[in-house]
């Protein structure tokens, strides 16, 4: 199977004869990275699966109008991030759950999760991460796990590099504190 560049995939997508094939290739190329980005935020596999599908459905609908002002990867990441934030916001609104209850729900989802293979220390770290506000959690995951550059994160999250650095610093300090005092 040929590995296409983003540019080649977009050219293929704009050709009606190859549109479906090109989109399948885009899905194959980015599904794993986007899935893990989503999964670390929503914890439950089924939720992550739904959100990943929604991300690609939205990408399918909007890709024809994609102007290539940003990279395809950045654009997809942004759609996925928006999906996640909307999902969490909706969850809070739907069940009238205060922030602490949502956090408890996510932690309980982590503890009884069939698809969590981490050891005790990793579980502790995940629980500490879940205590962070949503946006800070995204920044922490992208920097810590995905080792993404601040410049790239700035494009995805539409935030300045300085603000992202400060956000990551605060998040790391909080996690250190939680791990130390738990």
């Amino acid at each position: 199977m040929k590995d296409y560049s983003d540019k080649e995939l977009l050219i293929l997508f704009r050709n009606p004869d190859h549109k479906n094939y090109a989109f399948s290739e885009i899905v194959r190329k980015y599904q794993e990275r986007l899935y893990w980005h989503i999964r670390k935020m929503v914890v439950i596999h089924e939720d992550a699966d739904d959100l990943l599908q929604n991300t690609f459905l939205k990408a399918w609908q909007a890709l024809e109008n994609f102007r290539e002002e940003s990279q395809l990867y950045t654009w997809l990441y942004r759609i996925a991030t928006n999906e996640v934030l909307s999902f969490l916001k909706e969850k809070k609104r739907k069940y009238f759950l205060p922030l602490v209850d949502i956090e408890k729900e996510l932690i309980s989802g982590l503890e009884g999760n069939t698809y969590f293979d981490g050891d005790e220390l990793e579980l502790k770290l995940q629980k500490a991460i879940l205590k962070l506000p949503d946006k800070q959690r995204i920044v922490f995951n992208m920097r810590y796990y995905d080792e993404m550059k601040y410049e790239e994160m700035a494009k995805i999250l539409d935030t300045s590099v300085g603000a992202l650095k400060a956000s990551y610093h605060h998040a790391a300090k909080k996690i250190e504190y939680i791990l130390k005092n738990n």
């Binding site: 899935y35 893990w36 596999h45 981490g118 579980l123 770290l125 791990l179």
Partner: peptide
């Protein structure tokens, strides 16, 4: 022993 780095950067989640 209680720091972030100690927990490592491994992805603890898995998929079906």
């Amino acid at each position: 022993a209680t720091g972030i780095e100690q927990a490592g950067k491994n992805n603890p989640f898995s998929v079906p």
